[in-house]
């Protein structure tokens, strides 16, 4: 692509002017890339600065124990390359991720891909269980008036119990009845993910206007017809909003369960092992991969929503 056309192109894209050397950069300027890159840059700079501060004590001890003379530059580089830093520098985490994601076969127990797969399996299974359960609960709450008053307080109360306290109990109890493997973790994930789906869908199923209900009443529509023709379509925005929260909660539940039930591996088990051996870099690498998993899951739900609304011709 020629650079001659470049000034025209930049002017055409939102009119932002900047002395950019190539068309590719011009395109980045036109989009959201620059603001995003600036924010990422700021975070990285703060991170490196914080790493110097957090790891300074260790570094001073290391130098004085070894009796080496050091410059400020040596000191700074030292804080960014410790083996067990309090706060690892971004490039250390990147290197760890590179090593454990791309450097090892995906079947290796030390591969983060292996652990991410273990976590995602339980997350998705739990998410499906929780969403179905949450959806059925919302149907009951909306259609049975006594359940609305009788059940909602219990549903809310269920979420006030800290999952960290509950997860070991569920694992132990299920172990007693010979339920092991994926299911206990999925149940804990489901325990967290059903709640947003229930609350969201109760609101969604009630979101149709009174006039839209009156209309169906004039046709003498049955409860089932009202559900299919009005309540469900009207609840769609709430459905996807609550599924996004639900899938993220499911991931959290799975990781918490894996801390308790670490023998099968998973990102939670990686976190536990990392903290057990003081491997901060490993912890951060697992955290980052977990965050990426969460973003991907939420993104997938969003993609399904967009796919459906494109087909439905929504605005």
């Amino acid at each position: 692509m020629s650079t001659e056309a470049q000034p025209l192109q930049t002017a055409g894209r939102g009119g932002r002017r900047s002395p950019v050397p190539s068309l590719t950069v011009a395109r980045l300027v036109g989009g959201h890339a620059i603001p995003v890159l600036v924010v990422v840059g700021c975070i990285l700079a703060l991170w490196y600065a914080a790493a110097v501060g957090m790891n300074a004590d260790l570094q001073r001890d290391a130098f004085s124990n070894a009796g080496t003379r050091y410059t400020a530059r040596d000191f700074m580089l030292g804080t960014w390359s410790q083996e067990r830093p309090r706060l690892p520098a971004p490039h250390q985490i990147a290197a760890e991720i590179g090593k454990t994601v791309f450097g090892l076969p995906a079947t290796s127990k030390r591969s983060l891909l292996f652990h991410a797969r273990v976590t995602l399996e339980a997350t998705l299974f739990g998410f499906v269980l929780g969403s179905l359960f949450g959806f059925v609960l919302s149907l009951l709450v909306v259609h049975v008036p006594s359940l609305d008053r009788g059940m909602m307080p219990w549903i809310v109360a269920s979420q006030t119990v800290p999952v960290v306290a509950l997860a070991p109990m569920i694992v132990v109890l299920l172990n007693q009845v010979a339920v092991t493997g994926l299911l206990p973790k999925a149940i804990i994930a489901a325990y967290l993910s059903f709640f947003p789906v229930t609350v969201g869908m109760v609101k969604g199923l009630r979101s149709a206007e009174p006039l839209q209900h009156d209309l169906l009443r004039t046709y003498s529509a049955s409860t089932a017809q009202t559900l299919v023709k009005l309540r469900l379509p009207a609840s769609r925005p709430m459905l996807f909003a609550s599924l996004k929260v639900g899938v993220a909660a499911s991931l959290v539940g799975t990781i918490v369960a894996e801390v308790t039930k670490s023998e099968d591996g998973g990102l939670g088990a990686r976190l536990l092992a990392g903290s057990y051996y003081g491997q901060t870099i490993q912890i951060w690498a697992a955290l980052l991969v977990a965050a990426v998993c969460g973003a991907v899951l939420v993104g997938l739900v969003g993609a399904v929503e967009r796919g459906l609304s494109a087909r439905g011709g929504g605005r």
Binding site: E209, L211, Q212, L215, A234, R236, G314
Partner: peptide, 9 residues
């Protein structure tokens, strides 16, 4: 009705 009450979907 006073408003069209068409279902937007």
């Amino acid at each position: 009705f006073q408003a069209p009450a068409l279902y937007p979907w």
